[in-house]
Design a binder for these strands. Structure first.
Lengths: 152, 152
DNA sequence: ACGGGTTGTGCATTTTTATGCACCATTCGC
DNA sequence: GCGAATGGTGCATAAAAATGCACAACCCGT
């Protein structure tokens, strides 16, 4: 049995995949998830979709609105991940996250709420977030977590 | 092979049934439709739902929004039927339709658009429509058509 | 009147989705 | 440390939905 974390990470990936392109069959979703490192069968996917409140249209699966998604996952990032455009390092202590215009505040709030130990602090403008870390090693761990959370 | 009219009448009934209560299986819809006089099998229902753009949620079928429904049926009444509360005769030449507040105009427009020969004219207030007919026989035919169109 | 084309439908089957059951890992209480 | 409870998962299968095919009815052009 895997951990809750694996399940939540998979469900976050499902949401992202469904936003990205139409998926018409659960087996197709199994294949796409496998490509991302999530080994899972159709029966678990069926349960995930039901618990996420996803709808089935003849042309593909449709996500419920963001409020419902947020309520049904334990992932702070699932509803803001879509606004993240780019994650890059600047030197050894600053990590920069670019978002869509106007969304930096929401994304920064989600990062703060995650309470990552390695984050010394964050500051956000309109479409840019600076994340400060103590050193390059901490920066590297934060980068990994950002990439996992936002799927970039 | 039945006529287009039968198909459209059945699809209007499907929309009304799905608004009324949750339906989780196509076979259940077959049964509900049969109760209303529509003899049809699961395979035709599957096609109807696809062509109406209906979505499947784990707790039941979900209608797309009204604009999409209107575009996918040939029925003027399908989107306004839900606002009709009561249909009664007043004497032998007037039929009164009660609607939700503010909706009488939309419902009256749909009746006008239907172009029923027996309708001499209509007048609508905020939540009430008067439909004039030449005589009791014409009134009876209009009543039948109203009941069929609005499912009351 | 006839033939061809189109469309709706049901039957039977295929495909897809949901679920019962068993197993395993983790957590918690004693 | 151990046993019980809980929860996630896959396997196999049941249930549900989608679809290929054949047929029939209607419409239209000749």
């Amino acid at each position: 049995m895997l951990t809750d974390h694996h399940r939540e990470a998979r469900r976050t990936a499902i949401v992202r995949l469904l936003r990205h392109a139409p998926v018409r069959r659960q087996q197709e979703l199994v294949r796409l998830l496998k490509r991302e490192g999530h080994a899972v069968t159709q029966s678990s996917i069926s349960r995930d979709l039901r618990e996420l409140g996803v709808l089935k249209h003849s042309e593909g699966y449709v996500l419920p609105d963001n409020a419902e998604i947020a309520a049904r996952t334990q992932d702070n990032f699932v509803t803001v991940a879509q606004f993240v455009r780019e994650v890059r390092t600047a030197g050894t202590s600053i990590t920069v996250v670019k978002t869509t215009i106007g969304s930096a505040g929401s994304v920064a709030a989600a990062i703060d709420k995650a309470g990552w130990q390695d984050v010394v602090g964050t500051v956000s403008g309109d479409d840019t977030i600076f994340i400060a870390t103590a050193d390059a090693r901490a920066q590297s761990r934060v980068l990994d977590q950002l990439r996992e959370s936002f799927g970039v």
